[in-house]
Design a protein around this nucleic acid. Structure first.
Lengths: 195, 195
DNA sequence: GTGTCAACTTTACATCGTGTCAAGTAACTG
DNA sequence: CAGTTACTTGACACGATGTAAAGTTGACAC
């Protein structure tokens, strides 16, 4: 679909994305250049560093996959509980799309501060979503009384981490559906007041 | 305490451990050599690669901190539920001790297959502990009827991941006690049949 | 003393991936 | 034709790991 975009920058982003998601662990600048069909140096004409290329790729994926719209849907839910479930569905369903990129960005955390910041930024955005879902629960008086908003948000955010998805889906071999169902169940068990 | 051990190999392991746990992110072979007070090359007389040094360091920590004994205690618990709690306490309390090493080993996952295998090995050991705890719950008929042993083990193993500890304790600023309490509560909510 | 062995040192170099630099080419645009 | 833009080729610096070779030091044997 995004084939033949003529715009080199876009082609670079698409190829980077393809390579990262295709799971070939080590994606070097030269790998990307080869895939795009340009020289390694031409890459540096478009992106100053590998980190910036990866960061630009996340933004590119976000816009292609329309994350904002997905998450907006979850905001439309009426009850706090529905909202929680639909937020989990939206974010949980997005994880597989960005997983390769997530691995690449996280693996340069310690070598590149900029990449680390970019990843943290994304995770903070997810955390805001978690906080909103928790707030909706609290408004419905459905939050466990022994949990304050902050702690509940931390817990939900942790449950929804990419790392947990990796472990359950990739390592334990769960299906995406099993993952979402169990995480929903677990989140409710963790956060909801029993009544 | 471990000062002046005369045995160079042991001194290397202790210094590696110190450096890793002291949180100075980048621990290079030359950093370790400087800390020990020997040349970088002397390091290679004792350990062929950085990966092997890190792996040897985990074994060293295990023996100094006596993991086996800690986990053995959790096996002594009478009820399945006590056993779950005490396993979580034992492993959860061990995570802070090996956290620096865990970061280092994981960050070379993609560059070094041997390091990856060593880390996976450790995690499989934890998984066995989880499986044993789940089996004890099942024996007491306390496992949720809609969970089979496998899925329950996957869930518990995921909850107890080092990554979740990092997020809650390091990133969210929880105390170790809060962490253990919430993870215990969450594990029980996830696994125990309500009756 | 001499010989020898082990543990370590110093110096030098190969490799790999990132990122920089400079000069050249090919196509489009006025 | 001149100038600009997008790219190419080739060379190189850097930082970290790992290899290789020759030299130093101290202990122990006889």
């Amino acid at each position: 679909m995004s084939r033949d975009s003529s715009d080199t920058r876009t082609r670079i982003l698409d190829c980077t994305w393809n390579l990262l998601e295709s799971g070939d662990k080590k994606v070097r600048m030269s790998d990307i250049a080869k895939e795009v069909g340009i020289s390694r140096q031409a890459l540096y004409l478009h992106f100053p560093t590998r980190a910036e290329l990866l960061i630009a790729t996340t933004r590119h994926i976000d816009s292609v996959k329309n994350v904002d719209a997905r998450l907006a849907d979850s905001r439309a839910a009426t009850s706090g509980r529905d909202r929680l479930a639909s937020f989990i569905g939206a974010w949980g369903g997005y994880i597989p799309e960005i997983h390769g990129l997530s691995v690449a960005l996280r693996s340069m955390r310690d070598s590149d501060a900029e990449a680390a910041a970019a990843w943290d930024d994304r995770m903070q955005a997810v955390r805001h979503g978690c906080a909103a879902a928790v707030a909706a629960l609290a408004a419905d008086k459905m939050l466990r009384p022994d949990l304050n908003i902050e702690v509940a948000t931390d817990l939900l955010w942790t449950l929804l981490s990419v790392e947990n998805w990796e472990r359950l889906v990739r390592e334990c071999g769960w299906s995406q559906v099993e993952y979402e169902n169990q995480i929903k169940r677990l989140s409710e068990a963790a956060l909801l007041a029993k009544h």
